[in-house]
C-alpha cells in the first residue's frame, strides 16, 4: 500500500475527453487519457485517499483483461465507470479499510490567499465525499454518474443495468440523503 495522497492533484478538466484511445488499441495511451477519471471515480465511490493507487491499479488491470470485450460503438466513459464501480464495491466489502484513518498529511501551508483558497476548496471537496459516504453504493453510483459525470439517466440505467424508474428513484433518494448529509457535515464543521 502506498500513500497516494502525497501526489494527488485536483487539476484535471471535467468531464474527461470523450475521444480517447480505446482500451483494445494502445493501452498505455488509454491509461493516460483515463487515469484522472478512474482516480476521481474511485474517490467519488468511496475509495480512501490512501488506497487510490492500489484500487486504480486493480481497475486498469481489470479493464486490460477485458479490453477485447469493449464495444467501440458504445461510449467509453460508462464502460470505464462500470469497472471502477466493481472495484469500489469489492473494496467496500473489505472491513479493514474502514479502520484506517484518512490521513491528509500533505496539506499545503496556508500562507497566501491562493493557498487559503486551495485549502478551502480541498476541505469543501472532502466534505462532499464525507456526505457521499452516507449513501449506499447503488444510490451513490447513480448520483455520481448523473450529477458529476453528466450522464443522462437512461445512460445511467443502461450502464448499471437497472430499470429506468429505479434509476430515477435512486437519484431522488440519493439527492435527498446527500443534501441532508452535507448539512450535517457543514454543521459539524461550523459552516452555515
Amino acid at each position: 500500500m502506498t500513500d497516494s495522497s502525497a501526489a494527488a492533484t485536483p487539476t484535471r478538466a471535467s468531464p474527461p475527453a470523450l475521444v480517447s484511445p480505446l482500451p483494445g488499441e494502445d493501452f498505455a495511451a488509454f491509461f493516460r487519457a483515463t487515469s484522472a477519471y478512474v482516480w476521481s471515480s474511485l474517490r467519488r465511490l468511496g475509495v480512501g485517499v490512501a488506497d487510490l493507487e492500489d484500487q486504480s491499479h486493480e481497475t486498469f488491470l481489470a479493464m486490460y483483461r477485458h479490453r477485447a470485450a469493449f464495444d467501440a460503438a458504445r461510449p467509453l466513459r460508462p464502460w470505464v465507470f462500470a469497472f471502477a464501480l466493481r472495484v469500489a464495491a469489492d473494496y467496500r466489502k473489505q472491513a479493514w479499510h474502514r479502520r484506517r484513518p484518512e490521513t491528509l498529511t500533505h496539506e499545503p501551508p496556508a500562507t497566501t490567499p491562493a493557498a487559503d483558497d486551495l485549502v478551502a476548496e480541498r476541505q469543501q471537496r472532502e466534505m462532499i465525499h464525507e456526505a457521499l459516504d452516507a449513501l449506499d453504493l447503488d444510490r451513490r453510483a447513480v448520483l455520481v454518474m448523473h450529477e458529476l459525470d453528466g450522464e443522462a439517466i437512461p445512460v445511467v440505467a443502461q450502464t448499471l443495468e437497472i430499470p429506468l424508474n429505479t434509476a430515477y428513484s435512486r437519484l431522488r433518494s440519493a439527492r435527498e440523503q446527500f443534501s441532508a448529509a452535507l448539512k450535517r457535515a457543514q454543521a459539524r464543521r461550523g459552516e452555515p
Binding site: 501526489a7 485536483p10 484535471r12 478538466a13 484522472a36 476521481s40 487510490l52 471537496r125 462532499i128 443534501s179
Partner: peptide
C-alpha cells in the same frame, strides 16, 4: 452542492 467535487482529481504526473 456538488460544485467543489466536479473537477477531476487525478494522480500527479509522477504518480
Amino acid at each position: 452542492l456538488l460544485d467543489a467535487a466536479r473537477a477531476l482529481e487525478g494522480p500527479s504526473d509522477a504518480l
